[in-house]
Computed example of a mutant assay.
Amino acid sequence: MMEKDLIGDFKVSLELEGEKRISCDDLFNLLENIAKYGSISRAATEMGISYRYAWGIVGVAEKALALTLVHRQVGGFEGGGTSLSKEGSKLLEQYKSFKQEVDLQLEHFSNRTPPCKASSFADETAEVAFAGQHLLLASTMEPVETGLLDILEEAFFQSTGILVRHIALGSGRALELAKKGRVDMALTHAPALEEKFMREGWGISIFSVMSNDFVLIGPEVDTAGLKRLDYANGVKEVFRCIAAAAAPFVSRGDRSGTHLKELQIWEEAGVTPGGDWYSVSSGIAGNMGVLRLAQRKIAYALVDRATFILSRSTDGMKIYRGNEEGTALQGELGNVFSLVLVNPQRVQTVNFEGALRFARWIREAQAIRIIEGFGRESYGRPLFINVSEP
C-alpha cells in the first residue's frame, strides 16, 4: 500500500463570516507578493491569477476581518502601487509564524529521514547510535537565503547520518521557538538576545561560528547627502543625517538580528525613527526582501554584505557604510553568527547529544573549509568568515 503523504495533503483555509472560505495559500501568498513587489498587479501575475480575482481575495478578507490589509497609492513620487497596511503586515507575520509551527509539528509527527549509509562512516560502531536521527535548527535568514546552510547540513548528514532540518526566521523568533522546545538549537546573530537567553538558563552552550558585516545601503542619487559626511564620526552620524533629511528608510521591523542592530544604531544616534520617511516592513521575508523594497522605494536600509553581493539586481543602489570599505569604525558593523544549544535540563524534549555533535562538527576542518570557500568561485571572495574555535 502506498504511504499517504500527510504533509503534502495538509492545507489551511480561513472560514470568514461563518460561510465564506478562502485559501490561506492564496491570501497570504498574495499579501507576501504585494509586500515584495509593491504592486497587486505584479503579485497576481506572479501567482498566475487575475487582477480582479486578487482584489476579490483582498476585499472578502478585509470585509470579514474588519481590517484594512492593503493601501493603494495613486501616482506620486514612486509612481503608484499597492502596499501592506500595518494590520496587513502584522497578519502576514502572525500567519507565517503559525504555519512554521504547524509544519514543525508535522515534521515531528512524520519523522521521516533518509536511510543512512553505514558504509561511508569512519567509525561504524560509534555512529550506529546516531543513525536515523534528525535535528531541528531555527536559523536566522541569511545562512538560509545564501544557500550555505543547505550545504553544511548535507555535509553533516554525509559525515554522521544525522539529518538537520531548519526553519528560517529572524533571530528573535528563533530563540522563542528554542524556549518552547520546538527546536534543538538556534543559529542567530543577535548578541543581546543570545546573552539574555543564556542568562535566563534556556541555553547551555553558545559557539561563534562565522561572521560578515552589516552594510548601510542606499540610492546612488544619495537623497540624504551621505557622501559629504566624515567617516570618523561613525555610522550613527549617518543615521542622524538620514533622519534629519527625512530620507526614505526601510526597516525589517521583526526583532531579527538585523532589525535589532538597526535599533541599536538609532538609539546610539539619539534618534527615534518614525514618520512617513520610515517604513517598517515586517511582512517582508529577510534582508533580500528589504533590499528589493529599498531599491523600489529609492530608500536606505541596513542589510548584511552577503545579501547585497547575492542580490541579482542592485542597480541604482550602493554601499554607503561597511567594514570592508573602511567607512565604518572598527567593529562598528560586525555581524557574528552563533550556534546556541538549548539546555536539556530546562527543555527536556531537545536532542542535546545530537545538537552537541553538530556544534562540534561545525567547528572542525570540513565545515570550516565549506564556510571559507562558500562564494569564492562565483564572487571571487567568501561570503562569510570562519570565526569558530575548536
Score class of each variant (00 low, 15 high):
1 M>D: 14
2 M>W: 15
7 I>D: 12
10 F>R: 10
13 S>N: 07
14 L>N: 02
18 G>Y: 07
19 E>S: 14
20 K>G: 05
21 R>C: 05
22 I>Y: 00
27 L>F: 04
29 N>Q: 09
31 L>D: 01
36 K>C: 00
41 S>K: 06
42 R>F: 02
43 A>C: 06
44 A>C: 01
45 T>N: 13
48 G>C: 06
52 R>V: 08
54 A>I: 05
57 I>F: 05
59 G>H: 07
60 V>D: 14
62 E>Y: 04
62 E>T: 01
62 E>H: 01
63 K>G: 05
65 L>H: 14
66 A>K: 13
68 T>I: 08
72 R>M: 07
73 Q>G: 09
75 G>Y: 15
79 G>F: 14
80 G>I: 13
81 G>F: 08
81 G>D: 08
83 S>M: 13
89 S>R: 05
89 S>L: 04
91 L>G: 01
93 E>N: 12
94 Q>H: 10
99 K>M: 10
105 Q>G: 10
108 H>L: 14
117 K>M: 08
118 A>F: 11
119 S>G: 11
123 D>N: 14
125 T>V: 14
129 A>N: 12
144 V>I: 04
146 T>F: 03
149 L>S: 08
160 T>V: 10
163 L>Q: 15
166 H>Q: 11
166 H>Y: 13
168 A>R: 05
172 G>W: 02
172 G>N: 04
173 R>L: 12
177 L>I: 15
177 L>K: 11
180 K>G: 07
188 T>A: 07
190 A>L: 06
192 A>G: 02
193 L>I: 01
194 E>P: 03
201 G>V: 02
206 I>M: 07
212 N>F: 11
213 D>L: 11
217 I>Q: 03
222 D>R: 04
223 T>S: 15
223 T>F: 12
230 D>W: 09
237 E>P: 02
239 F>L: 14
240 R>D: 09
243 A>F: 09
246 A>N: 14
251 S>W: 04
252 R>A: 09
258 T>I: 08
266 W>V: 03
266 W>R: 02
267 E>P: 00
270 G>L: 07
273 P>C: 12
274 G>V: 00
285 A>Q: 01
289 G>M: 02
289 G>A: 01
293 L>P: 04
296 R>W: 05
300 Y>D: 08
303 V>Y: 00
304 D>A: 01
306 A>G: 00
307 T>F: 00
308 F>M: 05
316 G>V: 05
317 M>I: 04
319 I>F: 02
320 Y>M: 00
323 N>C: 09
323 N>R: 15
326 G>E: 07
328 A>V: 05
329 L>D: 01
333 L>V: 08
337 F>C: 04
338 S>P: 00
339 L>I: 01
346 R>W: 03
347 V>S: 08
348 Q>H: 08
352 F>Y: 14
355 A>C: 08
363 R>M: 09
364 E>W: 03
367 A>E: 05
375 G>M: 13
376 R>I: 12
386 N>C: 14
387 V>E: 12
389 E>M: 13
390 P>Q: 10
